[in-house]
Amino acid sequence: MIEVEGLTKDFGARRAIDGLTFNARQGEIVGFLGPNGAGKTTTMRILTGYMPPTAGTAKVVGFDVTEQSLEVRKRVGYLPETVPLYNDMTVYDYLKFMADLRHLAEAEDRVLEALEVVNLLDRAEGYIGNLSKGMRQRVGLAQALLHKPEVLILDEPTIGLDPAQIIEVRKLIREIGKERTVLLSTHILSEAQQICDRVLIINKGRIVAEDSPEHLQSRLAGAQRVSLRVQGDADGLESSLSAVNGVQTVVARPDGTWEVETIPGIDTRPQIARAIVQAGYDLLEMRAMGLSLEDIFMELTREEPEPPAMDETEAEQVEPEPEQETVEEE
């Protein structure tokens, strides 16, 4: 549904996006992940026909975004980052206006339908200028859904919403994504993890990683780590653990737990468990610790450290704090 090839956009001397290539199939939710200024919004603006690319091609539902811009725009629902709304119109009038611009048959019904989906029917006659940020966001979303588009492009769709609304909107996006193509940008990694089938991590206008959230995590996690808790005094444990095939390092942590790092690719947990029991200790807890998407994201998008002195602080930032890790996974 979305085919992007070598897409490049220059703003004067600055290259905002640099040779992006990616695809999105029907019924797929693709997440665009990246720091501010990475080129997410620019890419979305090109895909929605707002601005032409400097080089490369982009096709949406089979139509070229520069050559057949109007055809693309008819088939795309777009929620811009700024959620542009007319403050001096009522919610209903605004949506009716947008429905009329799209030549929708039974525009009134479609407007009411969209309002129902975003749960704003009771504010239909209210002026947009009086709405809260979350409500505005929902009006914007209703606008993007009006014409039941084949492709939905959402720039930061959950920003400014309260937790209940975030859950609501995510559920909505999942629902829409079952049949239609959704491309959304976010900087909330857990959001990408929860709703996207595929994640594109973009930095400085280039795609630095592309995979499903789960794959990204396991592929980029590098060495696997296992956290252990063993009952009682376990002085001799270190040597028994080190003897297990595949174990690289064994570290006793001050809180009494052990951290074992193994070489990537093989699961050594059964062997570790056996080794502990055979050595005569009681295993209380064992847990694999993956790198979170946050860590991967930081790893992929971090700046190359220039002066060597920076290395240490840089490494500290990237190294995940295992304590926090366990909390987050629970």
């Binding site: 725009r73 542009p84 007319y86 403050n87 947008m98 606008q143």
Partner: peptide, 14 residues
């Protein structure tokens, strides 16, 4: 100024 231009320029309007 308000950015609503983005809305109109991405709607199917010449």
């Amino acid at each position: 100024r308000t950015g609503t231009m983005e809305l109109l320029l991405t709607a199917p309007v010449k």
